[in-house]
Every structure is written in C-alpha cells, then in structure tokens.
C-alpha cells in the first residue's frame, strides 16, 4: 500500500517536472504576441502584455503583402491533405503486407525502407529537384506533394504494429471462411489497426505541414509558398530574428511569435482529436482465438 502511494507520488512529480520542462517554452511563446518588442526585452519573461498588442501584431502579420499569409495557409492545407491521403493509401497496405503476406524480397524492401529513413536529407534534396525538373514539375504543387507521399516511417510503424499486435490466427480464420486478401485487410485488419493508422496519419500531417526544405527548394513563386516557407522568407527578409529589422515592414519578434502560434495551432487541434484513438488498442488481444 505504501509503495503504491509512493509510486503515485513519484509519477506525479515526474509529470509535473515534464510539464515544466516542455511547457515553459510554450507558455512563453503564447505570451510573446501580447507584448511589444520593448516589453519582450525588459518585462518579466512570463508576464502578460495586453490584448491590444495582439491586435497590432495580427494587423502587421495579416497585412503583409495584402494578406499573403492566407494564401500560404490555404496552400499548406491542401498540399497536406492530398499528400497525407496518398501516403496512407500506399503505406498502410504495404506495412500490412510486409508483415503478414511475406514474399521473396519483402525483407529487402523493409531494410531499404529503413535505410531511406536514415539517409541525410542533404543527399536527397538536390537529386529530387533534378528529378522534378526533368519531368517539368518544379514550381508546381506536385513537386512538393509527390515526394511527401513517400512515407517510409508509416510503412515501418504499420509493419511493427502488425507483427507485434495482430495474431496470424485471425487472418487464418478469415481465409478459411473464404475471405479475399483485400477483404481481410479492409474488414479485419483495418478496424484492429485503427490506433496505429491514426498515429501515422497524425505524424504524416505534422511532417507535411512542417516540411520546409522541400517547398523551399521546389517552389519559387510566392503564391505557391506554404505557411512554413512563406514565414521563413518573411522573417529572413526583414531580419526579424537575431538582427536589427532595418526594413520598414513591421514584422518583428511579436509578429513572428504570433505566426508561430498560428502555424502550430492546426497540429495541436489534430493531436487533441487524435488523442482519443491513440490508446484504443485493446481489441487485438481480446479477439484472438
């Protein structure tokens, strides 16, 4: 009994420490747009400025280029949606088949998948650009969307989930009932694998939404830029971080902080939505036999 209580106390202390460590930077970021540049430098770091200041920062940010940030947001949304759907449609069946329908060469595909995951991005980006330019797709949305549909992490996670948590006996039983392999995947595997699919969907959304080098290299037109590349260009062209902003474009630290909050908000909403499904995985064990 005593050890149980000690265990709970230890756990709660651990949680509080983690929330402080991971949460303080975020609280600072949430408070930053409420302050002017001057207040950011001289007020207590975790103090609240004023709501009026948020309005000023928002006006400056959304006013840039006649509301260019809305275009960037819209671009980010549809590039992400399309690439994530294609990534899931290709990676989930692949991960499942590599685990449960092995064929000659399937272990090689798994190993190559793992290797492509750890290839330095620096080695891939220029060849990718040349590839896209050879088929005439650079500076089109496809040059960003297509490479993002390649999702080795998703394949690996589904593979690991399947070998660890989907008993072969369920699949065997469905086969004896005369179900087709495609039918087994759709009606038996997918419902059981929902937590894993939701998880890789979430990471795919984050990966696409936050991808930076790919759109940065591929897209030259400002109207095709994503939120991430647009903001980066905005920040570096105004010197808003780590230097004096000598331009008369009013983008400074508070505006950048506001832009940061806007760019992570969709991810946090998706996380909160996905959170319900991430832990639903009790069915796999319960249905064996």
């Amino acid at each position: 009994m005593l050890s149980l209580r000690a265990g709970r106390l230890g756990r709660n202390i651990l949680f509080i420490a983690a929330i402080l460590f991971f949460g303080v930077p975020i609280i600072w970021l949430l408070l930053a747009p409420t302050k002017s540049l001057n207040q950011l430098d001289f007020n207590f770091p975790l103090s609240f400025g004023s709501f009026g200041q948020i309005g000023i920062a928002a006006n400056n940010l959304f006013g840039y280029g006649g509301g260019l940030i809305w275009t960037w947001m819209l671009n980010s949304v549809w590039y992400t949606v399309l690439s994530v759907v294609l990534a899931l449609v290709t990676s989930v069946p692949a991960g499942y088949a590599l685990a449960k329908l092995p064929f000659r060469g399937s272990n090689t595909i798994l190993f190559v998948t793992l290797v492509t995951m750890i290839v330095p991005a620096a080695a891939l980006i220029l060849p990718l650009y040349l590839e896209m330019s050879a088929v005439g797709l650079t500076n089109t949305p496809w040059s960003v969307i297509l490479p993002l549909t390649f999702y080795p992490f998703g394949v690996y996670m589904i593979y690991l989930f399947t070998i660890n948590s989907i008993p072969s006996s369920i699949i065997e039983a469905a086969r004896l009932d005369g179900a087709s392999e495609f039918g087994i995947m759709m009606r038996i595997f997918l419902p059981l694998a929902r937590p894993a699919v939701v998880m890789i969907a979430f990471f795919a959304i984050v990966g696409s939404w936050n991808s930076f080098f790919l759109p940065f290299i591929m897209l030259t037109s400002q109207n095709l830029a994503t939120l991430q590349t647009g903001l980066q260009i905005l920040v570096s062209s105004t010197g808003a971080i780590g230097g004096g902003n000598l331009s008369n474009i009013p983008i400074r630290a508070p505006e950048v902080a506001l832009a940061a909050i806007i760019s992570i908000l969709p991810i946090l909403l998706v996380f909160i939505f996905a959170q319900r499904y991430l832990a639903a995985g009790q069915s796999a064990g319960a249905e064996k036999g």
Binding site: P25, V206, N210, V235, I241, A260
Partner: peptide, 14 residues
C-alpha cells in the same frame, strides 16, 4: 508533444 510542433523560423525565435 507541443514543442516538437514548433519548427522553422518559429523555433529559431523560441
């Protein structure tokens, strides 16, 4: 999870 969602220019500032 939240700090991991902050990337690029935003991460630099933070």
């Amino acid at each position: 999870y939240v700090p991991g969602a902050v990337t690029g220019a935003a991460a630099a500032l933070l």
